[in-house]
Amino acid sequence: MKATYKKHILNFKRPSGTSRGTLRTKETWFLILEDKGKYGVGECGLFRGLSYDDVPGYEEKLKWVSENITLSLQQLLNELKHFPSIQFGLEQAFLSLNADHPYKLFQTPFVNAYKPITINGLIWMGDIDFMYEQIQQKLNEGFFCIKMKIGAVDFDKEIALLQSIRNRFDKDEIELRVDANGAFSTVEALDKLRTLSTLDLHSIEQPIKVGQWPLLKDLCARTPLPIALDEELIGVLDVTRKEELLQMVQPQYIILKPSLVGGIKGSQEWISIAEKYNIGWWVTSALESNIGLNAIAQWTSSLPINLPQGLGTGALFTNNIDSPLEVKDGGLYYSPITEWDENLIENLCT
């Protein structure tokens, strides 16, 4: 068996705003396996400024993987404990190599029967007119669940924007989620949650900065609006530590980004613990190309999901990998008539 890797820079169609800044490009890496003429591919979705493995030596670790690919998958994953995005890329690559079709990793109705995964429509930060324009577009595209990033512009204006949606659609018609990306101070967080709760929102992601477990525990106990932990999960590697977090904080939801929390194995650990404590969950992509998004979506489709997932990011880039994935009517589909480029993996190797 041989392994190679290749860097790829994804370019946003238009700059996308978050409370951490504006994104224009997204770095990612492809890991390609070859064994007896068969190929497999996975995506190591490094997210600069957010990933736990955004550290010096990332490419050197990929080189180590390629030089030691004959070790067992479990041995490799153990060695990659501090590189969750490479763990996930490796899991994908082995699934791809061992599958009958290199991009059909899980045999589910999503892949085989054109059954959609319900997803949320993502609204990026910007001026109020731009955000309202995005909302109108998502509503026109048939989304009934909309997720809006907040915390970078005037809070009162954000509230007014959300209120304008609620004036037109009640919670049974449009589900609204917001994502603060840790933008609220601990002093103001509870008051802001109370204000937001008057708008019949589904939940808020990561209201305060990570690492403040006692304060987060108090906030989750007192909040009138369900809280979902997102960035809080990043870098919590050991199962014991994962359980300590969820047992102590008792959030209403957790959000799983496989590229950031150790791939399928790491995500399954979080799910098992969350269900033990009656904590809800959903899966979200982290700006991967369509290779990584495809793997996340297919894995997600194998789970007992009952909430809209966060898997609608494939159309953000000008130079994404062409794929059968398509978004319509508020769902992600795997098209039965669109094929992957049959030379894609070989092209990635060159």
Rank of each mutant, 00 (worst) to 15 (best):
L201T: 07
Q134D: 06
I146E: 01
Q107D: 11
I146N: 01
R177W: 14
T198K: 15
D172S: 14
I86C: 10
A99E: 02
F169T: 03
D127Q: 10
K192E: 11
H202C: 06
I128R: 01
P116Q: 06
I174D: 02
N167G: 12
E141W: 12
K115N: 09
F144Q: 13
D154Y: 09
A160S: 15
M125D: 02
Q206E: 13
T186V: 12
E158N: 09
I128M: 10
D170P: 12
L90E: 05
D100C: 04
A180R: 06
F144L: 11
E141G: 11
F94E: 00
I174W: 05
G151Y: 08
F169I: 05
A99I: 03
Q87E: 11
K147N: 09
G142Y: 11
I117H: 02
L190G: 00
S164Y: 07
Q163W: 09
D200E: 15
A99S: 15
G142N: 10
N181D: 09
E158S: 07
Q206T: 10
K171P: 00
L97V: 04
E141Y: 11
L161I: 09
K157W: 07
R177M: 15
F110M: 04
R177A: 05
C145Q: 10
N140M: 12
N140F: 09
N112G: 00
G121V: 06
N120G: 08
T118R: 10
P102A: 01
I128N: 00
L196D: 06
S96A: 07
S96C: 07
E158G: 10
K138A: 04
E133C: 04
C145Y: 14
T195F: 05
P116K: 08
R168Q: 15
D179Q: 07
I204T: 03
L193N: 03
K104N: 04
H101W: 03
Q206I: 09
I150C: 07
K157L: 15
L162I: 12
L196T: 05
I117L: 15
Q134P: 07
V178F: 09
A183L: 06
S96F: 08
Q206S: 09
T186F: 10
F94I: 05
A189F: 10
D179C: 09
N112Y: 12
Q92N: 13
W124T: 05
P207R: 05
K147C: 08
F110H: 04
G142K: 10
L199C: 09
D172F: 13
K147R: 12
F144T: 15
I146R: 01
E188R: 08
N167T: 10
D200Q: 13
T108A: 04
D200A: 13
P109T: 12
T195S: 15
Q107K: 11
K157E: 15
F143N: 06
N98A: 07
F143S: 04
A93Q: 05
D129L: 13
I128G: 00
Q163G: 00
L162D: 01
N120D: 14
L196N: 08
I146A: 03
R194K: 15
V111Y: 01
R194S: 00
T108Y: 04
